[in-house]
Structure formats: C-alpha cells, structure tokens
Write a protein that binds this DNA or RNA. Structure first.
Length: 571
RNA sequence: UGUCCCAUGGUGUAAUGGCAGCACUAGUGAUUUUGGUUCAUUCAGUCAAGGUUCGAAUCCUUGUGGGACAACCA
C-alpha cells in the first residue's frame, strides 16, 4: 500500500525541512557511516497493549526506513519473563500491521540472543570487566549512593576471573536462589552518571519464559541486552525516548567492549508524545481497565491503538497525526484537538454520508399521501464524485432530531419552528403548522405541510428555492433502530496526571460515555460491518462497533462534526 | 549542593549567521440543500541579561525555568 502521508507529500512539494533525526541520518549517509545502511527497529516489551505514543514511535521508525531505502525490524524486548506474555506479542503485531506497516522478515526476540549474550558476558568477565556480586539488592543500591555523592565499591568487585567465571556458570546452572547473586559490569562507582556505577547485567529469576521456557534461570537486564541486540541485528539508528538519554554512555560501553568491528549502532532520543486530557502510562491505563472505569483495553475512550481503532480512527489519520506533530527533544503536550482534526480530515474525504436520527421526534406531513413510499436519490459523498448515490425512502411519517425543533425560536435558529420553512435534505421543503403534546407538555408529534413542487433535483423553480435550514431525517416506517454510543474525553482536566498529590482518577469525566438506545438509521445501514465508517449527516463521524449483530446495530461516535451553531447558541 | 537534556504565538513544529514561516486552536467574512467542507482573513511568538558580528531565534558567557537519572523494570 501507499504509506505516503500528506506531510511527506508536502515535504516533497515544498522542500520542508528535516527533523533532527533525519538530519542525523542524512549526515551519516553523507559520511558513509555503517556503509550507508539504514536499519531501524521498533522494540516493544510484550507486557501490554500499544498506545498512541507507541504509534508515534512506530510511524517514526518505519517511515525513516521507507524514506532512506532502509528496513525496520520488529524486536520483542522480552528479558523479563514475569511480566511478559504471548498474548501481547500477538496484539502488538496486529496493531503495527493495522497501522499500515510491515517489519523486515520475521519478528525478532531479545530471547533469541540469550546464548550470544551469555557468551559476551563470559568474555567481559575474562576481560576483567564484569564480576559476580553476592550482596543483596538493598546493599548494592545503598552503595550506589546518590547522584551528588560518590558510590562505594562492592567487596566482591575484585574477585578473580576464575572465581567469577565459576560463579557465573553456577548462576546459569541454577545453583543459587533468586536474588542471591548478580553479574555486574565493572565500570566506575564514582561516575556522575548513576547508570555507570557498576550496573547489573544479569539477575537470577527462576521463572518460566514465554518463549525459552525453563532453559534459563538468569536473565539479562535491559541496559545490557538492548545495545547488544541492536548490534546483533545490525541496527544503524536505535531511536528511543528521552528518558534513555542518560543510558547512552552505558549502551555505548557495552557495544564497545564486545565488538572488534567498525560498525556501531547509534542510539538517539526523542521526546515522547503527551496528549491533553489523556493519560498514557501503561500503569494508569491498566488501572482504568482493572477498576472498570473503561470496558477493556479496546474501549473506544482508551488511547490504545485498539481503542482508537474501535472508536473509528483510521490508520491514515493516525499516521498523519504522527507526521504532523513532528519529532523533537523538548517535552510537549499535544492538543487532542489535533488528533480529532486529523481523523475529520481523513473521514471527510472518505466516509459515506448517511442519515441517522439519534433523538427522534415524529413529523407528520399532513398533505402527503398515506401509504406512499417515494425513493429519493441521495449523494453518498459531496467530497468524492466517485462515491455515487443511493435511494432512500421518504414517507408521510418521518423522524427528525428533537434538537432540530423549537416552538419559540430565536432569530438565528435555522431549523424547524412554526411558520418557517426548512428543507428536508434530498427531499422537500416543509413547514410546521402545529404540534401535538402529551399530558406533561412534551412534544409527541410535529404536524407539517410539504411543498410537492419543491422536490430536490426535480429542476422546478421551487426545488431551487433557498430556505435557511436543511435538516436530516429518516422515514418513521422504513428506518431501522440502532444503538449509538457517544463518547466524550475520558478526563475533564487538560493534564490529569500532572497534578502533584492528586490522583488522576479524580479527573475522570462521569459523562465520557452516553448510550442512546432509541436511535433510527436509514435502511441502507442494515448490512453494515464492524469498523465501517460513516458520516451521520450533520452529526459527526461514526463507526460500526464490533458488538453489532444482525438484529442489533451499534455505532460508536468517532468525533462530532465541527459545530459553529453550539457556539452561537451560547452567546 | 552532581551529570545530562531542553527553552520560538494558547498548542505543536520550521527557519542550519541573512525577510520569524507552517499546522492546530480561537475570531471574522464569503460560498454551501450538512450551522460540515472549501476559500479568504484576523489575533498571537524567539525565557532573561551581557558578549561576538555589518547582521543573532541561531554562536559564546552567565542567569532563570522545565525535564531525565539514585528498579535484581523496560
């Protein structure tokens, strides 16, 4: 498929400037660094579902590869068996492909490299650059001291190579319990960079690994495994988020001390995505799921890839979003309005227009023949001439939106009110003559007359008459019932997790989900399938939910249309 | 009283010593059988002080502000 985004086209057309990572790559290419190859990688830990922040990283890594005739690997960073599971492996692969990307060859796993990593650890021991420490986690942590004071060397730091080799092998063979021993790199306990104060390389974990089973009871730490894995795969540009910046010297130390070639993978860091009105940390998202504030990881209010997908976001809109927000090193909070803009921009061009009435009130055309069903031609998408048209039934009894009628309307109300003409989209001009109310004064029926000569597209004088309002509608007798789920932002505060001492759940929006069960949609929607996208005329973009069955249609509102009327109304 | 990173309209991002631009948001107007779209248009920015230079958002110095780092997590 063509993954070119709107922005990439703009770059080509306008010669837009490069982000700092593209500049680094172009410099490397110019200097023939690593033979002018570009190989990036997306390295998730399979311990949860992907969110929009991961999507940014995915788009970055895969797009860079595409742009520079390179490749992008997928590598599952599975060095901690107690947190990881194949369930996540599968969902991650599905999300990446749904976004429109394909990794190079088979997926890789850090666990594929456990043998090699072990061998290199042995080499580091032999070179006097690693040692086995018998101390507890607490002791080791204490000796590291704080960033402002020098650390203390472990009493086991100067064990002989032979003893270290023997102990490390016995660690591997399962002779010790969890926590009894670790392997540490021998670097510098006085380094101002805490990560260089003899970091752990291996810990003992008698745990079942989702891929290597019970083969191993020692597992490498991220810092040791990541750079070496990049090295094994021949990654040229290892792009990660800002918090790993201080890890970089260690990343380079590990690669430097096992290689005898010129090649070096290059770690570079960019600022992670933050979205207003959203939390992004795995821990908090998990909390929302576990405590039942949302209905699972793919709840349409979640910022997960699967949640956005179910909400009705398209892959193109997310790719475009990632492109539009750019890549830089300063901390940022992107306005969710930009995400919403991106999906409207895409759906406006692609989503078929249909008629749906979410809060119906009955309209009776008193001068329209009973029993008559007339089929009106409706344009599927004014933005896309190729989209064609469909026929929609028009009858004496109709439904319109309760919001679209007012008994005493202000001047600027361009909808139905007694004595003012409005057009029913694709149909006739009608005028309200009277209303019928129940005992409580609620309107139950609106009686109108229609102008038979005003039919849309008939070419008559009356059909060309301008009236101020155009309403959407469905036939009362021919339309079908549906449930519509209206979503609002999950949090009421711009920065729900940015408040010290306040739990982010304090800011949960109690009205983030409204379920409307009384909706009516035009009959052409009878055969809609999950993940179909529509514009409900005048209302917004909607997507068919996966819970839809033959007898029960369910739609999710992706995002409402921009609405200048609600702003006028407030004034 | 450490090391590292960062600082451009409300938000995000460009300008690589030479006209501070683009997008989103907000406002206004035109078009419109969607109060949508589209088009036009307005508001709004270089953290501060000093230095180098013909010329500084950009280079230097010193501040100020924000962030990361002290998991047997990644």
């Amino acid at each position: 498929m063509d993954n070119k985004t709107i922005n990439e086209e703009k770059v080509a057309k306008e010669g837009k400037s490069l982000n700092f990572i593209q500049q680094i790559i172009e410099d490397d290419l110019k200097n023939n660094v690593n033979d002018g190859r570009v190989l990036t990688r997306f390295p998730p830990e399979p311990n949860g579902y992907l969110h929009i922040g991961h999507a940014k990283s995915i788009c970055l890594n895969f797009s860079l590869a595409q742009q520079y005739q390179g490749k992008c690997n997928l590598r599952f960073d599975d060095t901690n068996p107690v947190k990881e599971d194949t369930e996540y492996v599968d969902s991650i692969m599905e999300d990446i492909q749904w976004l429109g990307f394909q990794w190079e060859g088979e997926p890789h796993y850090t666990s594929d490299y456990f043998d090699q990593l072990y061998e290199w650890a042995v080499k580091l021991i032999k070179d006097g650059k690693a040692y086995v420490d018998d101390q507890t986690a607490e002791q080791i942590s204490e000796q590291k001291k704080s960033p402002t004071e020098p650390g203390i060397e472990s009493p086991y730091r100067n064990r002989s190579v032979e003893e270290n080799l023997d102990l490390f092998e016995r660690m591997k063979n399962g002779e010790f319990k969890d926590g009894e021993k670790v392997l540490r790199a021998k670097i510098d306990m006085n380094s101002p960079n805490m990560h260089m104060r003899d970091p752990l390389m291996y810990r003992i974990m008698h745990a079942h690994h989702h891929r290597t089973g019970d083969k191993w009871c020692i597992y490498p730490m991220y810092d040791y495994a990541h750079g070496e894995s990049d090295y094994i795969e021949g990654i040229t540009h290892s792009i990660c988020t800002l918090e790993f910046e201080v890890h970089r010297p260690l990343y380079e130390w590990f690669v430097e001390n096992i290689t005898d070639t010129e090649y070096r993978p290059k770690q570079r860091e960019f600022a992670r995505l933050n979205l207003s009105y959203t939390v992004m940390s795995k821990r908090k998202l998990l909390e929302l799921v576990k405590d039942g504030h949302v209905n699972g990881w793919d709840d349409p209010r979640m910022p997960t890839v699967s949640g956005l997908r179910r909400r009705g976001y398209t892959p193109a809109s997310i790719r475009n979003f990632a492109d539009t927000i750019g890549v830089a090193k300063r901390d940022n909070v992107i306005d969710v309005a930009l995400l919403e803009h991106c999906v409207r921009e895409d759906l406006n061009k692609t989503a078929p227009r249909v008629m749906a009435v979410l809060d119906p009130v009955k309209v009776v055309l008193t001068n329209y023949p009973e029993e008559q069903v007339e089929y009106l031609t409706c344009e599927n998408n004014p933005e896309d001439p190729e989209a064609g048209s469909r026929e929609m039934p028009f009858t004496r009894e109709l439904y319109i939106e309760r919001d679209d009628f007012m008994e005493d309307a202000p001047k600027k109300y361009f909808r139905m009110t007694p004595g003012r003409e409005v057009r029913l989209k694709f149909g006739y001009i009608v005028m309200c003559e009277s209303v019928v109310k129940d005992a409580n004064g609620n309107i139950t029926e609106i009686h109108c007359t229609y102008d038979p000569k005003s039919k849309s597209g008939s070419g008559s004088e009356e059909s060309k008459r301008k009236v101020k309002g155009t309403l959407h509608w469905v036939s009362a007798t021919e339309s079908i019932p549906a449930e519509v789920r209206i979503y609002d932002r999950l949090f009421t505060d711009e920065a729900p997790d940015g408040k010290k001492g306040v739990d982010f759940k304090e800011f949960l929006n109690p009205d983030s989900l409204k379920i409307l069960t009384n909706c009516r949609v035009e009959p052409s929607l009878a055969n809609t399938k999950a993940e179909d996208h529509f514009q409900f005329q005048r209302l917004g973009y909607f997507s068919t939910d996966k819970d839809t069955t033959e007898g029960k249609l369910i739609f999710n509102r992706t995002v409402p249309l921009k609405d200048s009327w609600s702003k006028i109304k407030k004034k």
